[in-house]
Design a protein around this nucleic acid. Sequence first.
DNA 1: GGCTTGAAATGACAATAGTCAAGACACGGC
DNA 2: GCCGTGTCTTGACTATTGTCATTTCAAGCC
Lengths: 235, 235
Amino acid sequence: MPNERRKKIAQNSLLLQTFPQDTQDMILSMSSWREYDRGETLFLQGETAKAIHIVTEGWVKLYRIAPNGGEAVVNVFAKGQSFGEAVAFRGQAYPVSAEAVTSCEVMRIPSVALLEAMRKDPEIAVAVLASTFMHLHSLVSQLEQLKAQTGPQRVAEFLLELCEQETGSCVVTLPYDKFLIAGRLGMKPESLSRSFARLKTAGVHIKRNHAAIEDIEMLREYSESDPVEAWHKAQ
Amino acid sequence: MPNERRKKIAQNSLLLQTFPQDTQDMILSMSSWREYDRGETLFLQGETAKAIHIVTEGWVKLYRIAPNGGEAVVNVFAKGQSFGEAVAFRGQAYPVSAEAVTSCEVMRIPSVALLEAMRKDPEIAVAVLASTFMHLHSLVSQLEQLKAQTGPQRVAEFLLELCEQETGSCVVTLPYDKFLIAGRLGMKPESLSRSFARLKTAGVHIKRNHAAIEDIEMLREYSESDPVEAWHKAQ
DNA sequence: GGCTTGAAATGACAATAGTCAAGACACGGC
DNA sequence: GCCGTGTCTTGACTATTGTCATTTCAAGCC
């Protein structure tokens, strides 16, 4: 396999990119890769964490099964993103389960490797904290969305995060199937469908797994508007 | 003021309790205390973080104002709890705002103090990461609740977290006013009222700011049951 | 081409949660 | 005790979301 490619992706990940070269090499030499098929489980909630994961290809979802059987998608990670930093250090139990949503390739850094690096260079600890903070921040954003925005507004924000531009119009590709998108946004697939239908008046047109956005700024305005106001706009 | 009491609470906080004695002393000597009146702001989202906070008396809420004006309560902290660990190290901007919900007393640890401690003893970094992980975990739990449980079930779980026992019956005191509880649980005060009414059939009786739980296990079963099932029970 | 299959959209209905307005209740001041 | 204030509860109504059944659509296969 193209081992160099993997290394490059890992080195450019948010977690490792700020580390000095020799530390990166040390960590990479202690890590392993594994490929997963779509639907395969990386780990289950409750299992003891012994490694940090970095996605080098494909998509991985973190989810949680509530005691009542409901599934809550906590996050979906793409190439270059890492997860499990904070939990691995203490050998604690994963609070979530992880599953491959496409066939994918994941790098496993044994937590002892990072612990060792942290002992040598306290700056590494700060870098790990910074990376953990990103996750914290993303969870806070999700909470805000769930508590303070309507369904269609959450969908609008999701689409906005996918496009790279700030203004104008663009076409984005939906990264995974609608069932998963719905889960990530805390709604049922049917509600997602209806939300897409609503967004037509805000200049969004869905065709298969592509979404055409007429005017990014208009959509942003919609996602940031007052729920009652948003309703009138969508009539 | 009883400075000894403050120090004791801070030392028993989840963040500091695992630190060696001399590190605790060093950190405490560099910290300051401040009192806040109900409603006063500790900091606003977007401000640069320079310190970690530990509540030594009263209650502090972290909240976020969405672009559309909606408020989302991210968490409410009691005596002995700390927040702002991950963000302070990088001098990043707070992702949330903090406000005193009762008159309270808060200790501020300048981030330089902890950075210094981390440089001396890498174990400190692991302790800080563990503490950050607690926050991460609590946010994940909240997401699960919001996405996979009905209103009354979330209220039931909130009550269960307040009682210390695992079985039998007990009376818990609602720690802050219902408006704030509603916000924390992602609902309007009216819905909270109705949820309480529903929980009567699950053996919960609200009187002022006290909640009497007839049978803790029965309530847990209710909070963990399937939403549709839960509805039949509540009829 | 016609068939099967799975994902996605739609419609009808039930249940949940929000909004607005009115009423009940405790607490403090006088 | 009485009254005002603010908090909490209740009721009526509306909007949103979930559920279930049905239909549409596109893609793959023989």
